[in-house]
Simulated scan of single mutants.
Amino acid sequence: MAYSTVIARHKTQEVGLGERVVGGDNPIWVQSMTTTNTFDAEATVEQIKRLEEAGCEIVRVTVPKKEDVEACRFIRSKINIPLVADIHYDYRMALACLDAKTDDGKPAVNKIRINPGNLGGQERFKEVIRKARDKGIPMRIGVNSGSLEKDLIEKYGFPCPEAMVESALRAIETCESLDYRQIIVSLKASHVPTAVETYALYASKCHYPTHVGVTEAGSKEYGTLKSAAGIGAIVLKGIGDTIRVSLLGDPVPEIAAGFDILRACDRRVTRPEVVACPTCGRLDIDLERIVAEVEAKMAHLKNPLRISILGCLVNGFGEAKEADIGIAAGAGKGVIFKRGVPIRHVKEADMVQALLEEVERFEEDTPALKSHQEKEKKKNALPVLN
């Protein structure tokens, strides 16, 4: 494909998280959080299984009481992705999670998430750090604009990016003073411009990996758009090692939304991307039907192909040439391009089948596919941001 823009990725250190490694040149992992009562272990496992089927790569559960800690022992033994315990207010739950084991002696959780603004002070935070260090379990320092430390609110007047970053750096300094560096950082705000500026400011000062999200994003429809604006803007700055799209209701749709954001940002393309022109008065083929059929029949494919289906004679030929496989159509017929080269003419009735045939041939073209995949890999091995 002709696109050559390369976004420098914020180089971060690696942090092991169960079978995943967060940071460095590793993929940007897509995660979610359960909505069940964690102590209802069977229901929680059932929901996590649905998340796994959707492609979820890390999952978080809330742990406000002892029954939830015990449930984590069972949950971890039944799922296939890293389990994160979300801790607020009660530092004892963090300590209990760090001590908990599955029946086969493995850690019941692969990471804890704490909020420095509500854990109960420095001494309690240090106790959690020491335990995490001794157990070899990583921690996410989850700064949230809605629960900053009181002294920072008094200093800055409101939860601005400077206040949020200072909170994170203060917590990191405490961790490092105790020789603990298995740290992932999030700096979430519900206001998109604040979130974007905060992550950019943090990345200019620190190199621990980041979990990126827009908190309290809202309903499925608006929340997806708001998350795309915020997470997308942050990822396009080269920042982010794992993401979560926070939506109201069933968490399963968060996964597809997360992967779509990464795919649209060309940061992690895990399946073909179909590009289609918008409907306008120049359109004279049934483009909506063609696109729907192509997407449905390629849903099983995993290779990062860019496929353009254009029904416009004004821009169609130029845009089709920029894709791996493209078709420029009009007046009931079209031209299929492969890497910018016209290869065949087709009638509208034959477009779907012809396009699928060329996609299949493209995937069988080992040298070309290998070259394309190497380009994708290089995007995760990019220069360090200053």
Rank of each mutant, 00 (worst) to 15 (best):
M1D: 14
A2D: 15
A2S: 15
Y3V: 13
A8T: 02
E19G: 13
E19N: 15
V21H: 11
G23E: 05
N26D: 12
M33Y: 03
T34Q: 04
T34N: 03
T36S: 13
N37T: 13
R50E: 15
A54G: 13
I58Q: 08
V59H: 02
R60V: 05
T62F: 02
K66Y: 11
E67Q: 14
F74N: 09
S77F: 05
V84F: 04
R92C: 04
R92F: 01
M93L: 06
A94D: 04
L95T: 01
L95I: 07
A96P: 00
I112R: 06
L119W: 04
G121K: 04
F125I: 06
I137N: 05
P138W: 09
P138Y: 10
M139D: 09
R140H: 11
I141A: 12
G142F: 07
G146W: 00
L152T: 01
S167N: 09
E173I: 04
C175S: 12
L178I: 02
D179M: 02
Y180V: 06
I183K: 06
I184Q: 05
K188M: 09
S190T: 07
H191F: 03
H191C: 04
H191Y: 03
T194C: 03
V196N: 01
E197C: 01
E197L: 01
T198S: 02
S204N: 08
S219T: 15
E221S: 14
I239T: 00
D241S: 07
T242D: 14
V245S: 11
V245K: 04
S246F: 00
G249E: 08
G249T: 07
D250L: 08
F259M: 13
F259Y: 15
D266S: 14
R268M: 14
A276V: 14
I290K: 12
V291N: 08
V294P: 02
N303Y: 06
P304H: 07
R306T: 15
G311S: 14
G316F: 06
D324N: 13
D324Y: 05
G326F: 05
A329F: 08
A331N: 14
K333M: 10
G334T: 13
K338G: 14
K347R: 11
L356H: 04
E374Y: 03
K377C: 11
A381P: 00
A381R: 05
L385Q: 01
L385G: 00
